[in-house]
């Protein structure tokens, strides 16, 4: 066996190995860049869902609005073949900042009518927001170039290196952004503010009884999360260079992110990043092995990974509800308060 293996191995010319290695590196760099963006979205959803219990089923809407905002601000004015508003050629950083602003604003607009209602109403409303934003982008004449999308979105810091090395620059940028978001969120969630959010998530009545304006705290988490999602959308737009409405579908932009948070373990930031890595590896990795799979599976690989995403959600809810990484129990004064509440119920 060993001998044969060696023979086969030897038969492969060096150049092929080299090409494969380069291919693997390229893929790895691209993969990590993408996953870093997704991890930022997962962290934002984790702030909303994991820490605060906000049921956002329209993640892709925030992501999309960020992507379009930044693209429209940084693109040159439309050519005669395109028709979109703005095109101000502003610096990319201003685009990113505005994208976060747009995401936060969208959260504010959706949150105002829904955050004080039953929690599942927000989920229904947010699914609707994604639909409506897509249909606006697709339909409105002279707004965002409709179905053809926006192309040639400028890159950030691409004048330092040649084109083939830019991927490394991009990777570093994304990792820096991810770290910034991660440590920022670690700070705020460990602070008293984060403890209030968890108290609201676990028992709204108790938190309310303790004198916290729960709606306003939930709104703050929703808006901050929305802003981070908007920022991630901008990062995405400047990474791919072109965006169109159909690319922002619910599955890729919302449900995959949910799966990342559920798999990683909601309520802790480390879990969100690890979930993004694991689910991202699966999601972006499966198309690569398409050719190696038997035909019956290979031709259906996209549906299979979709099926797996659904299955992961259900299986984790049933058998591993705390995800791969369990939230650290935080002893807070609300817990003791809650116990007193129970006794008074009697």
């Amino acid at each position: 066996m060993d001998h044969q293996y060696e023979k086969n191995f030897m038969a492969i010319p060096d150049s092929v190995i080299l090409v494969t290695l380069i291919g693997a590196t390229n893929w790895g760099v691209g993969f990590l860049t993408t996953v870093a963006i997704f991890a930022i979205v997962a962290l934002a959803l984790n702030l909303q869902w994991g820490y605060t219990g906000i049921f956002n089923f329209g993640v892709v809407a925030f992501f999309m609005i960020g992507a379009y905002t930044s693209a429209l601000l940084t693109l040159p004015p439309p050519s005669k073949f395109e028709s979109h508003i703005l095109g101000l050629e502003l610096p990319v950083l201003i685009g990113w900042f505005s994208a976060a602003l747009a995401g936060g604003l969208l959260a504010l607009v959706i949150g105002l009518p829904t955050l004080r209602l039953r929690r599942d109403f927000l989920a229904i409303a947010t699914i609707g927001v994604a639909t409506i934003i897509r249909s606006i982008a697709n339909t409105t004449e002279g707004f965002v170039n409709r179905g053809s999308g926006l192309n040639g979105i400028p890159r950030f810091l691409d004048n330092f290196t040649n084109a083939s090395d830019y991927k490394w620059v991009l990777l570093v940028i994304m990792i820096v952004m991810l770290s910034a978001v991660y440590f920022g969120l670690q700070r705020v969630t460990a602070a008293p503010w984060g403890r209030v959010l968890r108290a609201i998530r676990d028992n709204e009545e108790t938190a309310m009884a303790a004198g916290k304006h729960t709606v306003s705290f939930r709104m703050q988490a929703f808006v901050l999360g929305g802003a981070i999602m908007g920022l991630a959308g901008a990062l995405w737009a400047h990474r791919t260079g072109s965006i169109s409405p159909t690319a922002f579908n619910d599955l890729f932009g919302t449900f995959v992110i949910w799966t990342m948070v559920m798999v990683g373990g909601s309520g802790n930031n480390k879990g969100a990043v690890i979930g993004a890595l694991a689910v991202g590896f699966f999601w972006f990795g499966t198309p690569l092995i398409q050719e190696d799979l038997p035909d019956i599976l290979g031709t259906r690989v996209f549906q299979l990974r979709e099926l797996t995403v659904g299955l992961l959600i259900v299986l984790f809810l049933l058998f591993q509800p705390h995800g791969l990484i369990r939230e650290k129990p935080q002893v807070s004064r609300f817990i003791t308060k809650r116990k007193n509440m129970y006794q008074q119920l009697d």
Binding site: E306, G310, I313, L317
Partner: peptide
């Protein structure tokens, strides 16, 4: 509700 979403995706 999240579980139902997972079932919907699978279906």
């Amino acid at each position: 509700a999240i579980a139902s979403l997972g079932i919907g995706i699978m279906l």
